[in-house]
Nucleic acid binder design. Structure first.
Lengths: 163, 163
DNA sequence: AGCAATCAAGTTATACTATAACAAAACAGC
DNA sequence: GCTGTTTTGTTATAGTATAACTTGATTGCT
């Protein structure tokens, strides 16, 4: 689906701008308010371009003149999650920008344990498999947490030359 | 694989006894020490038969005369996880007994949001799907977190009659 | 524009989850 | 029994998240 995270030479600033632009558009369409603090949180998350912890965002909020107590950032994160603009990575207690916020979906992530780059995959195939297993036992799926940790292509190369 | 959690009439005490028996056996085989505090933690986890938080275990440890500071339980949990006897559920910050500790494997869980019963599925099918997606982008999988939340059969029945 | 209702942000306090670091005790092999 | 190793006790603290109440901004109505 979207594996920019594993490509070395992509235009990061372009990523950020595009994500923000789309967020503004979506929020307008949905009549949701992408307030300054919410937009800043989203921008910071995209700037990191890796899963980032809530508390890591606080200093930048403070610098920008906002209140930098935890509830501020958690409230922004809650909003952004509701709008599908960011996902939470449970195994890392961290948050990452969603490259496809236009329609609600479950996340499915590949997370490099070394460089922490994270790629969101199409959750479709995994969902189909899970749906089948769940149906077999009569379970109704509402939410899926699929987080895969390992080594991205770049870091595999690195490990090989180290050894 | 093992869906006891969704079957209403299973012999719970038997579950617990069997899990403990197998744990003792495995640890002996592996020359690992299933000390009293470790065994107690394992027993408590199986008694709950649902994901249970580390701090919820502390009172019972205190009653049994052990130190009940967090490190005690976290160390026991770490050991039990290393031995494959329990899994951690990242999306709940909780721990659950593993019904198949005899060989290392990734967990794949169905978690009922209402009654909190949790069933560990065979991770094979999901793993195959993930492996394929990962290979396509050159990612090497090391660890999988697959946690599905929804409604178990029993609770679906309950919701129907409520509405 | 003025008002009321709603939503968002500020603020303080605290709950929950997990680990670091060092001391004491228990255990295993010689 | 001595010694090195593993486990447990103990104290302190780091890291993550939310409750509850106050203040401020925005919206929609008249």
């Amino acid at each position: 689906m979207d594996n920019l995270a594993f490509e070395s030479g992509h235009d990061h600033q372009h990523c950020i701008d595009q994500a923000l632009q789309q967020a503004r558009l979506l929020c307008r369409e949905r009549q949701q308010r992408l307030t300054p603090v919410r937009e800043l949180v989203l921008k910071l998350i995209w700037q990191s371009h890796q899963p980032i912890g809530a508390y890591e965002l606080l200093p930048a909020l403070a610098e920008a003149g906002f209140n930098s107590a935890p509830p501020t950032v958690y409230r922004a994160l809650e909003f952004l999650q509701e709008q599908g603009l960011v996902h939470r990575i449970a195994s890392l207690n961290a948050f990452v920008g969603c490259p496809h916020p236009e329609q609600a979906h479950q996340g499915c992530f590949l997370i490099c344990r070394q460089c922490h780059s994270t790629s969101e995959l199409d959750a479709g195939p995994v969902h189909a498999t899970l749906e089948q297993s769940a149906r077999a036992v009569g379970f109704t799926i509402e939410q899926e947490t699929v987080e895969v940790t390992g080594l991205c292509p770049n870091c595999q190369a690195g490990e090989g030359s180290d050894a």
